[in-house]
Design a protein around this nucleic acid. Structure first.
Lengths: 158, 158
DNA sequence: TATTGTTATACTCTATAACTATA
DNA sequence: TATAGTTATAGAGTATAACAATA
């Protein structure tokens, strides 16, 4: 199921099989480099939870567990740690006192912004090192990479 | 350090800061989707070790520990597990009997090939869903993404 | 009785320290 | 003595099961 078996286009530079393999390798490598730049001292589950809390606003612990696809006891511990670090805060629900809502503190938002900026600075430098032709071709393709991940039926939630 | 502070190009679609943030978001999301497709039942360290062993040929356990940036006892356990699963095999060094070399078995190579093919099929489908213009713009940019990760001075090893 | 979240406990993964066997 | 790898032990992280508080 590679270039020989896909009867779409004869030219190798638009053969979807060849393009897929090429894109997979490049995207995986670039993502790995970016991930390495994102070190914060937080564990993967902690940084992931913090990101979810920021993106999806105040969340109950149960909702956070669903977002993170993780068991309730795990979020209890992760949130306790993030709270201890001052990155998130809990607010009791007045109407139903079983429920707690967590949201990101300014310190938590700063941490996430710092990580993103570090990655963007690195990427901007790499992009700045490209020649004009390369930079224009990259600019012209950014929305296509958008399109590849948009409306994915296999990943409805999250 | 975003679009307003980088005095490179006035047009937003080639502003390196804007491009960097856009690319970061898209690459991260696409990589996450691909990673989710790569589930094998192996732990992250196991799949990573298997990949390193395949790529860098027969490796001593010490060399594998260096590649994986992991402590020696960890590779002992990871390799023992991969060997038990029939995915790698050990070969004693005849000249120095302290040393063991690990390499990928056909079953291990098959497993890695299957994972890659699963990802490539998914990506090829997404690319096939693009219109001709999008597909050509993506094809024209693939080597640029190559260029972004090539010769990275900050990641000399590995 | 049902639901939200916590505590108790166990398992996996990885680390450091101590050890075995070769050189 | 030095090196390659293993075994012993400990610390994170996450899971299931049992529990407490509230509805």
């Amino acid at each position: 199921m590679t270039s020989t078996s896909l009867p779409t286009t004869a030219r190798p530079d638009t053969d979807v099989g060849v393009m897929a393999a090429h894109l997979r390798v490049n995207v995986t490598r670039l993502a790995r480099l970016l991930r390495r730049l994102g070190d914060t001292g937080l564990s993967p589950s902690q940084i992931s939870a913090l990101t979810s809390i920021e993106r999806h606003g105040p969340l109950t612990l149960g909702a956070l567990a669903d977002h993170e696809r993780v068991a309730p006891p795990s979020v209890t511990k992760v949130v306790a740690k993030l709270e201890e670090l001052g990155l998130v805060e809990r607010k009791a629900n007045a109407a139903d006192r079983r429920v707690a809502h967590v949201s990101v503190t300014p310190a938590g938002a700063d941490l996430l912004a710092d990580v993103r900026q570090r990655k963007d600075v690195w990427l901007a430098t790499r992009i700045g090192d490209l020649d004009d032709d390369q930079r224009h071709r990259l600019a012209a393709a950014l929305d296509v990479i958008d399109a590849l991940t948009a409306h994915d039926p296999t990943v409805a939630g999250r």
